[in-house]
């Protein structure tokens, strides 16, 4: 495989907040998510996984600043800590930061954390997303999946 090299992960962003904003839980997107899940319980499940931190403010809000090269980056982990479901149409606050960046052999492991709060400041959900990027222009890891 031939891939171009790129500057690599921006380790200076470790510990930095990348996004601090408010978003509306879009009912249409909830419907799409429910359809993607495609089950009788999809509507309920959609309210638990409605927002994905790393892309909710656009791909350039997290992926770009971190210097992730999509040709050699896959997702290696995802966690959710639920305090309540999202509600269709509600406005929620979200803070996204880079919890950690670890070098491991030829990989960079990047942990992005997203914290969602309701209009009263109550905690709705915490997420962690772990991305795995090859530091060299070689085959992608079979440890990661996308």
């Amino acid at each position: 495989m031939n891939v171009e090299t790129s500057p690599g992960v921006n380790h200076d962003l470790k510990g930095q907040v990348l996004v601090d904003t408010e978003v509306v839980v879009d009912p249409d997107r909830l419907e799409m998510l429910s359809a993607a899940i495609g089950s009788a319980t999809g509507k309920v499940t959609a309210t638990l996984v409605a927002l994905f931190g790393p892309t909710l403010a656009g791909q350039d809000s997290v992926i770009g600043p971190l210097g992730l090269d999509l040709r050699r980056t896959l997702q290696g982990g995802q966690s959710y800590e639920w305090h309540r479901p999202f509600r269709a149409g509600e406005r929620v606050g979200v803070t996204i930061d880079v919890e950690d960046i670890v070098e491991k052999q030829s990989l960079d492991l990047i942990t992005v954390r997203a914290v969602f709060r309701g209009s009263e400041g109550e905690l709705i959900q915490r997420q962690r997303s772990v991305f795995v990027q090859m530091r060299e222009a070689t085959e992608p890891s079979t440890e990661a999946t996308g």
Partner: peptide, 28 residues
């Protein structure tokens, strides 16, 4: 990856109900 996770969460929602789910930590 998060779609795979969502589908697994959906199985848990079907079995236990959303109100019982506190945390899931998935390694892809």
């Amino acid at each position: 990856g998060p779609l795979t996770v969502a589908l697994v969460v959906d199985r848990l929602v079907e079995e236990f109900g959303a109100e019982r789910l506190l945390n899931i930590d998935v390694r892809l």
